[in-house]
Amino acid sequence: SEEELIEKAEKLRKEFEFIWNGIRFIIRENADEIRRFEELLKE
């Protein structure tokens, strides 16, 4: 039914948001290391 689809979509959206926030947190935490690594690659 349509309601089930909406519920599934909402659940997926929440899971995606949770994963995305996790990725963003990891990137933020490691931003300095990532930048340093990029500098090494440029040399």
Rank of each mutant, 00 (worst) to 15 (best):
17 E>T: 09
42 K>P: 02
3 E>Y: 08
27 I>F: 10
34 I>M: 03
36 R>T: 03
20 W>M: 01
7 E>T: 08
37 F>M: 03
11 K>I: 11
37 F>P: 01
12 L>S: 03
21 N>F: 14
31 A>R: 07
2 E>V: 13
3 E>C: 15
43 E>Y: 10
10 E>A: 05
31 A>H: 04
11 K>W: 11
26 I>S: 00
26 I>R: 00
2 E>C: 14
28 R>A: 10
39 E>A: 06
10 E>V: 06
19 I>K: 00
32 D>L: 13
12 L>K: 04
42 K>H: 04
36 R>F: 10
36 R>Q: 07
7 E>G: 06
41 L>R: 01
39 E>G: 02
11 K>G: 10
12 L>F: 06
37 F>V: 02
5 L>T: 08
3 E>F: 11
12 L>T: 02
22 G>C: 15
18 F>H: 04
17 E>H: 04
3 E>V: 09
19 I>Y: 05
26 I>Q: 01
5 L>V: 07
2 E>S: 13
17 E>M: 10
35 R>D: 06
6 I>D: 04
35 R>L: 10
43 E>G: 09
2 E>F: 14
24 R>G: 12
10 E>K: 06
40 L>T: 02
17 E>K: 05
10 E>I: 08
17 E>Y: 07
31 A>V: 08
42 K>I: 10
28 R>T: 08
30 N>S: 10
37 F>T: 02
18 F>S: 03
29 E>P: 08
41 L>D: 00
30 N>R: 13
19 I>M: 03
29 E>V: 13
28 R>S: 09
19 I>R: 00
43 E>S: 09
30 N>K: 06
9 A>W: 15
2 E>M: 14
21 N>K: 10
22 G>M: 15
34 I>L: 05
19 I>C: 14
8 K>Y: 12
34 I>N: 01
43 E>F: 12
28 R>I: 12
21 N>G: 02
42 K>R: 10
30 N>I: 15
41 L>S: 02
11 K>H: 09
24 R>W: 14
26 I>T: 00
4 E>S: 04
2 E>T: 09
31 A>C: 15
38 E>R: 04
4 E>Y: 05
41 L>G: 01
40 L>C: 13
27 I>L: 12
41 L>M: 03
4 E>C: 14
2 E>P: 09
42 K>V: 04
37 F>L: 08
33 E>F: 15
7 E>N: 07
30 N>C: 15
7 E>Q: 09
34 I>K: 04
8 K>D: 07
22 G>F: 15
39 E>S: 06
1 S>I: 13
36 R>I: 06
4 E>M: 08
18 F>Q: 02
5 L>H: 04
42 K>N: 04
14 K>F: 11
28 R>C: 15
24 R>I: 14
35 R>W: 07
24 R>A: 13
34 I>G: 06
41 L>K: 01
32 D>Q: 03
15 E>A: 14
13 R>T: 07
9 A>D: 04
38 E>G: 02
21 N>Y: 12
35 R>V: 11
4 E>L: 05
37 F>W: 07
5 L>G: 06
17 E>P: 00
35 R>M: 09
22 G>Y: 15
17 E>R: 05
40 L>R: 02
8 K>I: 10
19 I>E: 01
14 K>P: 03
18 F>P: 00
23 I>H: 03
38 E>S: 10
9 A>K: 04
43 E>C: 13
30 N>Y: 15
20 W>L: 13
26 I>D: 03
17 E>N: 03
8 K>A: 11
34 I>S: 01
17 E>I: 12
12 L>N: 02
7 E>P: 05
25 F>E: 14
40 L>K: 05
25 F>Y: 12
6 I>V: 12
